[in-house]
């Protein structure tokens, strides 16, 4: 609800648009027009073979995805993509929350030092860190398995077994994603008045009850928007899989998709694999991903109420 005081605020019809104009112009040129062009491309055969004579082909690109030679792969990739986005988002939020609570212990005097270190995965270019993880996780030569080996644990096929590879990818993605969540939670925790906890203690509540009835509700409004946008971002992630496994390990019968392929990496192979450039097909795939992410986001928003203030 609007605050009653705002009823009196100046209400001329035109000037609000002056404030919107710079932003809307930028959005028009960098999101709306390219977006519209991309949607149009999705229904054309714009590709390396038809650079000069490309034109409207209707639903053919979508048919290629669902009923063409690659049929069946899309659904498998999609279901893993959902799991990936859910686990990554919740996982990095959980890790971020736990670390934020540890860091929020004011009695640990050097906590800023830890915070500085723990934020590094966000600050480093992810290309190099992902490639480093790839080396560390090699099952025969990787330092991780060697260390495990020295304490008597058999080699784990981190990246060469389908199930393990998925877990490893998730681990790396959470490693990249938690610092952002941690920073947000830390901000939230610091904004909770100390008195609330004191009062709680007087009432004889234990730590878990304090967490359940004070911390979580107070953090909710911070978490929800970040979870919703985090989900959308993870859903469309490209770099982690592309650099870590290239979609592999592969299992027969896969034409293009491997065990860890996400829609984005799969789409990339479909449209730009080898020296093939099929912009129409890529756009159709992109449009599909957009429709999926968009509707999931809408569902998320209405379920969690994270966006209520905007809708009012």
């Amino acid at each position: 609800m609007e605050m009653p005081t705002r009823i009196q605020k100046p209400r001329k019809p035109i000037y609000p648009y002056f404030y919107l104009l710079p932003g809307l112009t930028a959005i028009l040129f960098s999101i709306i027009i390219p977006g519209a062009m991309t949607i149009y491309y999705a229904f054309t055969n714009y590709s390396l073979r038809h650079l000069q004579d490309w034109g409207w082909i209707g639903w053919e690109n979508f048919e290629k995805i669902f009923v063409g030679s690659n049929r069946g792969e899309f659904l498998g990739v999609f279901s893993w993509n959902m799991q990936w986005a859910l686990i990554s988002t919740i996982g990095s939020a959980l890790v971020g929350l736990i670390l934020a609570m540890l860091l929020n212990n004011k009695r640990v005097v050097e906590r800023n030092f830890y915070r500085v270190l723990l934020i590094l995965p966000w600050a480093l270019p992810s290309t190099i860190t992902i490639l480093t993880w790839k080396g560390l996780f090699n099952s025969s030569f990787g330092p991780i398995n060697r260390m495990l080996g020295s304490i008597g644990i058999a080699a784990i096929p981190w990246l060469s077994n389908s199930t393990w590879a998925r877990a490893t990818c998730l681990l790396v993605n959470i490693w990249i994603g938690y610092p952002f969540m941690m920073s947000a939670f830390l901000g939230g925790l610091q904004s909770i008045p100390e008195e609330l906890y004191d009062a709680c203690q007087v009432d004889g509540a234990n730590g878990w009850q304090a967490f359940r009835h004070i911390t979580l509700p107070m953090l909710r409004s911070i978490v929800l928007p970040l979870l919703v946008s985090g989900f959308a971002m993870n859903f469309g992630n490209f770099g982690v899989i592309y650099l870590l496994t290239e979609g592999g390990p592969f299992k027969s019968p896969s034409v293009l998709a491997g065990a860890t392929d996400l829609l984005s990496t799969y789409m990339y192979k479909v449209a730009f694999g080898a020296t093939n450039f099929d912009y129409g097909l890529a756009s159709a795939n992109g449009l599909l991903i957009f429709l999926i992410v968009g509707s999931l986001t809408l569902i998320n928003l209405s379920m969690t109420g994270a966006f209520q203030e905007v809708k009012e």
């Binding site: 709306i32 977006g35 991309t38 491309y41 959308a232 984005s264 992109g286 991903i289 957009f290 992410v293």
Partner: peptide, 16 residues
């Protein structure tokens, strides 16, 4: 606008 922002950039680059 936020929903529009979710069109993957990997695809719109050609249009851009």
């Amino acid at each position: 606008l936020i929903l529009l922002q979710m069109l993957p950039a990997t695809v719109t680059i050609v249009a851009l």
